[in-house]
Computed example of a mutant assay.
Amino acid sequence: MDDVKEARDPAPAVTRSIRLLGLLADAGGPRTLTELAGGLGLAKSSTANLCLALEAAGMIERSANGYRLGLRTAELGGAFAAQFNQVREFYSVCDSSDVLRQELVQVAMLDGADALYLARHEGSLSLRLGTPLGSRLPAALSAAGRALFAAMSDDDVVARLGEDAVFPALTERSTTTLAGLLEILAATRKRGWALDAEESFRGIVGVAVPLPGWAPADPPLSLGVAIRAIEADFERIERVAAALQEAARALTNPFSAAARR
Rank of each mutant, 00 (worst) to 15 (best):
A229V: 10
D26K: 15
L244I: 08
D95M: 13
V87C: 08
S200M: 04
V99H: 04
L116G: 03
T188R: 00
A82N: 08
A11I: 08
L118T: 06
D233C: 01
R239K: 10
F234Y: 04
L118N: 01
R146F: 06
L129D: 12
R16P: 00
L170Q: 00
V207L: 09
A187F: 06
S135F: 06
P210V: 15
Q83K: 13
N85M: 07
L36T: 03
T175S: 04
A119H: 06
G38N: 10
A64C: 04
R249G: 11
V99Y: 05
I230N: 05
L223W: 04
V209P: 00
L21C: 06
R249H: 13
M109H: 09
E55C: 08
G28L: 03
G213D: 06
A232C: 07
E55Y: 01
D95P: 00
S200H: 02
A113F: 07
W193I: 03
A53W: 01
R173C: 07
A151F: 06
A242D: 09
R202T: 12
Y91R: 15
R120M: 14
L129Q: 13
V158D: 02
S126T: 05
E55S: 09
A179I: 14
Y117M: 01
N65P: 00
R19G: 13
P210W: 11
A217H: 14
R173W: 05
N49K: 14
K44H: 12
L185I: 14
L69N: 08
L148N: 04
L182F: 09
L40N: 02
E61Y: 03
R120E: 14
G28I: 06
R173A: 15
A144Q: 10
R260E: 05
A151L: 07
R62V: 09
R8H: 11
T252E: 03
L40W: 02
G39P: 01
L110C: 02
L21Y: 03
A74L: 11
L244K: 00
R146M: 11
M1V: 14
M109P: 03
A143Q: 00
S222N: 05
G77A: 13
D154Q: 12
A208N: 01
L50A: 08
A215D: 12
A13P: 01
S46H: 14
L125K: 13
L69P: 02
L23Q: 10
D156L: 09
S142R: 07
